[in-house]
Amino acid sequence: MTQYVVLSAILFTIGCVGVLTRRNAIVVFMCVELMLNACNLAFVAFARQHGNLDGQITAFFVMVVAAAEVVIGLAIIMTIFRTRRSASVDDASLLKY
């Protein structure tokens, strides 16, 4: 079981680093999704370890939430993209960062 948790931690870290270092909004967004999926993996692994199903049910809900996030995120990114023809986070810098 530990391997799964470690794997999920690694995935989570990759996602996290990706969010912090990448500049393309869509890539950043995908990294966020990667983090969520790392969470799913952890949930399922822990569910197996504890022998109850709470973790697996949670994984379902996380998927739902991830999907909702995708829908809303893509909508926002697309609006910006169409306005500015770029998906780079840096280009969106009217506001002081």
Partner: peptide, 20 residues
């Protein structure tokens, strides 16, 4: 729109932390 994007990306990021 930029506000929405920033809010969204950072918000999603943080909810990832919450979830983990």
């Amino acid at each position: 729109q930029e506000a929405a994007l920033k809010y969204f990306l950072l918000g999603a990021f943080s909810s990832g932390f919450f979830l983990y």
